[in-house]
Design a protein around this nucleic acid. Sequence first.
DNA 1: ATCGTTGCAAACGTTTTGCATAAGG
DNA 2: CCTTATGCAAAACGTTTGCAACGAT
Lengths: 171, 171
Amino acid sequence: MSSENTTVGQPLEAVPVSMTPLQRFEEYLQSKGLRNTEQRRHLLEQVFNRHEHFDADQLIDQLPSKGNANYVSRPTVYRTLREFVDAGLLQCFELDGRSVYEHDYGYPQHDHLYCTKCRKLIEFTSEDTIRIRDEVAKQFRFRAKEHRFIIHGVCDECTKRRARDRRQDRV
Amino acid sequence: MSSENTTVGQPLEAVPVSMTPLQRFEEYLQSKGLRNTEQRRHLLEQVFNRHEHFDADQLIDQLPSKGNANYVSRPTVYRTLREFVDAGLLQCFELDGRSVYEHDYGYPQHDHLYCTKCRKLIEFTSEDTIRIRDEVAKQFRFRAKEHRFIIHGVCDECTKRRARDRRQDRV
DNA sequence: ATCGTTGCAAACGTTTTGCATAAGG
DNA sequence: CCTTATGCAAAACGTTTGCAACGAT
């Protein structure tokens, strides 16, 4: 058994990359004949400002509101998030009926634990997931592009909190 | 390496169960004080009639339309699908922004390949996925309830079809 | 000058809701 | 008879679109 191949660690270390996300994005825009606009630059800055997972609404909430400088409209946010995914800067997956984004560029491949109580996403790495993916793809002659491995359940804190709450109920 | 632990097969064999889905559902309704209605029985029959993956719209399409016998309204379909999941009869996961359902009761645990060209879902089994899930859960003190492992890519038929189309283009 | 980009409003597809009526236990 | 379930219409939700005005190259 290859139990020792499953490595779990948190937080994950960034992976060294030769370009900044902005440089890489500019290169992408060039190659596609797209334009380097103020909105795109502002969004890129916000998105790579911190490392948490986020959805479109959370990004919009942390942006200046309508009427203020650096405001970006909702449709543009959605359009730009697609471009970031296209450019290889972000990864996107679905959770509870919405799209969730996370850094891809400069960040190692990983999978997630998802706490259905507090909705926290915990990252884990396991070499086995890639191995399974490659093995299965080979057997089905399937051209695997990516995978999503999400383990649903309840995190340690939520389990403890519930136990505590139950104890209090009895008093 | 535990390459031999990853078993891939298709189609999967049904798992022996002591009750029919209907019997199990009736027990569930009883235990929850819910009612065994015509609509619920009709939906259960449709759902366990065949084994393909389906979404709410596909189920509604194969149902009698408004005005006919055995018609079930859209809200009731959605409400009942939730109950089937609750009762352990169906599993639900998200794909392309909608919920996809598949048989759970009487069917072995498995994961999926998803062809992004033809949108086909291919089932595979791997003991490693459960093993990874348990190992990771243990290390994070996480109470794992279930997992979703979906490999995105292009299936063999779509790859071949594209190659064929390209060849024709050149002629 | 050209052509991609933006913001707006409105549409979209999926799923959920409030509520009056119907029907199971 | 009591309560849950249903169908309807409408809302909610996240996301996308058409389009005229704008702005990067």
